[in-house]
Design a protein around this nucleic acid. Structure first.
Lengths: 366, 366
DNA sequence: ACGCTAATGGAAACCGTTGTCAGATTCACC
DNA sequence: GGTGAATCTGACAACGGTTTCCATTAGCGT
């Protein structure tokens, strides 16, 4: 792999000790407990180490003995491009990384391969705990994590007995959006959502698929929308919901196109993520629809770019989410009852939502 | 940490073997070499494992024995928020993660703590190799990585003897931007760049700091700009260069403000990243300057948002950068000469660059 | 000179696996 | 029934450290 060939067998703590004529204990102490040996000897040990090219105690061997890996594992959705393309997910990652950094432990991204049901990676990860973020609830890797005898925290996942959990008050957040739209007068709405299951479906969503969604966040949001709009007298069964497997602006745009082609009477497009909403905005522009005069568009998450363009959305503290999860995992080993932490969300009304356009039909016509 | 208290000592491969009345080898084989024992026995082993709550072979012990950790380490700049806030950096991360996933190995983010010179994290990381991305060349963690007896690949770093390296043809890329601007007629330009060293400086940059910059990419870009503009007859010493330690849109805006306040005659603001350029755009708008009629703004990297708004920038294949680095590290163990891979860049002329505004002074006045 | 204490270094057990290799068992077939 | 092949199994030696006692020595007061 492009490194100079190792000339001879790597030096080990034992060989170094032999070279020096001291015991392994002493060499180990030179590295880990400087106060346990004289400075003079320590200096000699370290210098000889340098001379022999000994890189210090082997991390794996050390981990085995101390029973601490110095890392936490992160299990993400099986599709990495989702995780990295969504600023909200990146925010969570950043928060988690910050918490890890504070604690001086590494963050181990577990390769949960999409195709093959390769749970081995979970078993192979030498970590002191796991954070599970937004994986489908029927993901075999998740099951594998739960089998490991290490503490675990889940983010944006359905509750699991005995497992710490952190997540936003999704239902309440969605309620705010729904109220906002209902209050503005919208009755003809359409929804664009992210993938609901591991099987691809880039099309309208059947009620069955909706209620059986394996991605907790998406399901929660849809359910809350259904509740809120039903309460406002809108027949939810008549509301078109369209799904996109991939999570890009372009997919949001194509979804909006499909949605508006089929349901031109819609006055508001509700997107379950800001990324999708950005796509919907692009499609609106392409069609010559003015936002919000002709069409209202709302998002979810409150990413920076959304804020920049004044998207009406629900902001959730993504950085906090990751940070809190990390702290929960790494925090004092108080083995009290499992904690559930709910993070606040906030409706941010921007420039992309307004009253519905005046319909062509008379008001009593609907 | 919120997990049910472990009732008794964890089961080990040995205790499982004892329970079953077989040897440890047999149990090990049940997990790792199914063909080495009868299906019946294997079934019995696995079932007993489940009954005893044995989670499978301990990953750390296995790593020690097999000498493979199944993970590669990633050393990032000491400032995580930079790494995660910059879409270009995230792209690299994603590419690397993809390569790791393909190979079925984990990606271990090393916590290179900013304040304390805590090199220990590098020593503690149980990994089979390292990728180093955009850290200052005097970073102690980098030195620590190079001491580890594992293969290493560096991205966007100055060359190191015997180490694989991948990076864009930065100098050429910058040349294209400079040519573009010179060709348009710009002679009064200003530069906004990212941090040049580990010490904070949110101000104009002295020539000494410029040439002594510890961040390779930034230094390369500045140097190339100097060469290109000098060649066009512009006195580089007279070109204001302003630096921002943090890498956010807001910082880009504040830098642009400071720059334009001090040098109102400037007709083009060259930013060494798209994020900073977005900030410069915002500041231009705030001032009522039309882009590009009143002011030209250029970026670097070619992030998605830049493309969306039509920023003139240089696109580099960030995803590829990470992917290639990963493949280099994980690729066939051909211990040939260290490889250096240069990735292509491409000038993308957008809607933010145009000829300089007509000056108030007559043309012979400058 | 003696005994006590503190400082320093060492012996040995242990962490939980995997891999090699030889021995044991089974089995088909002559 | 004997024989060789095929299939399993088990003993043992690593892998490279850390840690808990122990033993030794040095320092020091009396």
């Amino acid at each position: 792999m492009g490194r100079p060939i190792r000339t001879r067998r790597q030096a080990t703590l034992a060989s170094l000790a032999a070279e020096l004529g001291v015991s392994r204990t002493t060499v180990s102490n030179a590295y880990n407990r400087p106060d346990q040996l004289s400075p003079e000897l320590r200096r000699r040990v370290l210098e000889t180490a340098r001379r022999l090219g000994y890189p210090g105690p082997d991390p794996v061997a050390r981990s085995l003995r101390t029973r601490r890996a110095g890392a936490v594992g992160l299990l993400l959705t099986e599709n990495l491009s989702y995780a990295f393309r969504d600023p909200a997910a990146v925010g969570v990652l950043e928060g988690l990384a910050l918490a890890c950094e504070d604690a001086g432990v590494g963050l181990h991204l577990v390769p949960a391969s999409p195709g093959r049901e390769d749970v081995a990676a979970v078993h192979r990860a030498g970590v002191d705990g796991f954070v599970v973020y937004s994986v489908p609830d029927d993901d075999p890797s998740l099951a594998a994590v739960l089998e490991r005898p290490v503490p675990t925290v889940i983010i944006d996942q359905p509750s699991i007995e005995g497992i710490d959990r952190v997540g936003p008050d999704d239902a309440a957040a969605v309620g705010k959006i729904a109220e906002h739209l209902v209050g503005l007068g919208h009755r003809q709405v359409g929804v664009i959502c992210m993938r609901l299951a591991r099987e691809r479906n880039d099309d309208f969503v059947s009620p069955a698929r909706q209620s059986g969604a394996h991605f907790h966040v998406q399901r929660t949001r849809l359910e809350a929308l259904a509740v809120a709009f039903s309460a406002a007298g809108v027949d939810w069964a008549g509301v078109p919901v369209i799904e996109r497997f991939d999570h890009t602006v372009d997919d949001g745009a194509s979804a909006a196109r499909q949605l508006l082609d089929a349901y031109p009477q819609i006055t508001a497009v509700i997107c379950t993520s800001d990324i999708l909403a950005l796509g919907a905005m692009a499609e609106a522009e392409r069609r010559g629809l003015r936002v919000p005069q002709d069409l209202t568009v709302t998002g979810f998450d409150g990413i920076a770019e959304a804020e920049r363009i004044g998207l009406t959305t629900v902001h959730q503290p993504v950085l906090e989410k990751g940070k809190v999860a990390g702290r929960l995992l790494l925090g004092s080993a108080e083995r009290s009852a499992p904690k559930v932490i709910t993070l606040p969300t906030e409706l941010r009304v921007g420039r992309t939502s307004g009253p519905p356009r005046t319909v062509e039909e008379p008001w009593f016509g609907g």
